[in-house]
Each structure stands twice: as C-alpha cells, then as structure tokens.
C-alpha cells in the first residue's frame, strides 16, 4: 500500500515529499535477486564464451574453475530461495494480512495499448507519453519474465548440476536440452537486464544516473505524479461519500 509522507526539514521552508513505493520485504527481495543475478552472470559468462581469451583469465582471477563453479551454484541456490521468499511474501500478505490480490501486477489489454502508445510517443506520433498506474508494462514484463526464467534456469541448472541423478528418472535427452536452454535463457535474461532494464530504470532522463527508489523504497512525489499518474490520482482522490476513509492511501504531514 503506498503511503505518502511529507517531511519538513526543521527551520527550512524546503519540503521534500516522498511517496513510499516498496516495503522492506520488496527492497530485500530486489537486493538479493540483484546480487545473486550479478554473481551468476559474472561466473556464468566465461562458461558461455569459454574460447574468448579473457574468460580463462577471469576464471583464474577467481582461483580456478572449481571456485567459480562454487560461487555459481551458491548464487543459484540464493536466487531460488529469494524467489520462494517472494512467493511466501505474496501468500502471507493475502492469507494472513488479508491484503487484496495484487491485481496491479496482472497484465491486461491496457498494457499492450500503452506499449504501442509509448512507442508512438517515442517515434513522435504522440505528444505525451501514456500514463501509468502502479506498474507500467515494462515493470510488469520484468516481473513476469522471472516467472518464466526462474523455472527454466533453476530446472535446467539442476539437471546440469546432477546429470546422473536426473537421467535416473528422466530420459537422457534432458541433459543436452537443459544445456541449450540454460545457455540461451541466461543470455536472454542478461541482455534484457543489462540493456533494457538498466536503461529504463536508471538511465532515463528523470532518474539518471541511479534510481534509488528500489533501495530506499521511496520515490519523490513530483516523480511519482509523472510516472504513476493514474495510481497517484487514485490514491489522493478523496472519496466524496466516505470522506473519513480517504481512498486507499494517506498523505501525512510529519514535521519535526
């Protein structure tokens, strides 16, 4: 639930308003996912491009192939655990904390429309970019891509780690299939994250050079209004009929 907090710095007129976008669990989940992802990439890439001269050098920096393999496997376990943590977090929120189902993450037709509206804006066919709710189509894509990527990567990685065990219960072809799937899906995830995710979340003009919101959980109000206009409007709209409930979010003024 987004809450909007307003903090006045003592004796100063400057007022910096921040909107809370992520809770502490989401911050931890992203941080652990990010660190394990980076470790998996830097230890996995030399395997993919093993004939490149730099790869052997890089593996030796880590103290040899058994070390780099241990880091790769450990990071993989961490990544699987953080994904389970996220599923438990969602389930706990809904079943115990009685939070509503996070409908705002579910892709809809509107997302496809906005994709094309945004493209139209980029090529100059629209004057203004489309307005987004809590999550724009890119954020939804990033999120749901993990639901595809994690089973593929963890499943194929498990087969590659324990090929003898896997072929006791599965046909032999799972090993070459896992090999090709692991390698290709890894390149897809790596390329997407390092080019598209990083560009839109850190290099776009409003946030360059680093968008801190996923690490602090907070977004400046000005930016929130721009980037999540629909949600902001929804949060701040005062319900005429039930004025005491003030819609979903709250604006609180905290002065020192």
């Amino acid at each position: 639930m987004a809450t909007i907090t307003r903090t006045d710095e003592a004796e100063k007129v400057q007022v910096e308003e921040q909107v809370t976008r992520f809770d502490v669990h989401q911050i931890i989940q992203h941080a652990v996912l990010m660190v394990s992802f980076i470790l998996l990439v830097v230890t996995g890439l030399p395997m993919k491009f093993s004939t490149a001269g730099i790869s052997e050098w890089w593996v030796q920096i880590w103290g040899g192939i058994s070390n780099i393999r241990a880091v790769h496997h450990t990071s993989a376990y961490v990544m699987v655990l953080v994904c389970l943590y996220h599923l438990i977090y969602i389930g706990y929120g809904m079943l115990v904390k009685k939070r509503p189902f996070p409908m705002w993450m579910v892709p809809s037709v509107a997302d496809f429309v906005k994709l094309f509206q945004e493209l139209a804006y980029f090529v100059g066919l629209r004057k203004e970019p489309p307005q987004f709710d809590r999550f724009n189509w890119r954020e939804k894509f990033d999120y749901w891509a993990i639901f595809w990527g994690m089973p593929v990567m963890a499943g194929s990685g498990f087969i590659l780690m324990f090929p003898v065990f896997a072929t006791k219960y599965l046909p032999g072809w799972v090993v070459p299939v896992a090999y090709t799937a692991h390698s290709h899906e890894a390149m897809l995830a790596f390329t997407w994250i390092f080019f598209i995710h990083i560009f839109f979340n850190h290099f776009s003009p409003s946030v360059y050079p680093l968008n801190k919101s996923i690490f602090t959980g907070k977004v400046p109000r000005e930016r929130y209004i721009k980037e999540h206009a629909l949600e902001y409007e929804r949060l701040t709209r005062v319900d005429e009929e039930k004025p005491e409930k003030e819609a979903v979010g709250t604006i609180t003024r905290a002065s020192q």
Binding site: L115, E118, L119, Y121, F122, V123, G124, R138, W173, P176, V177, T180, A181, H184, E185, M187, L188, T191, W192, F195, I196, F199, F200, S204
Partner: peptide
C-alpha cells in the same frame, strides 16, 4: 534438443528485438 534450441533462438530474437526497438525509440525521443 534441436527444436528447443530453435525455440530459444526465436524467443531471443523476438524478445530482444522488441526490447531493442523500444530502447532505440526511447534513446531517440
């Protein structure tokens, strides 16, 4: 193994192609 490889090649080409188009569009705009 051959068809899985073909599938992933297609997946990579389409997803990264679409991502690349959006990225280039954003850079230009």
């Amino acid at each position: 193994a051959y068809y899985v490889e073909r599938f992933f090649n297609l997946l990579l080409l389409s997803v990264l192609g679409a991502g690349g188009i959006v990225l280039m569009g954003a850079v230009v705009r």
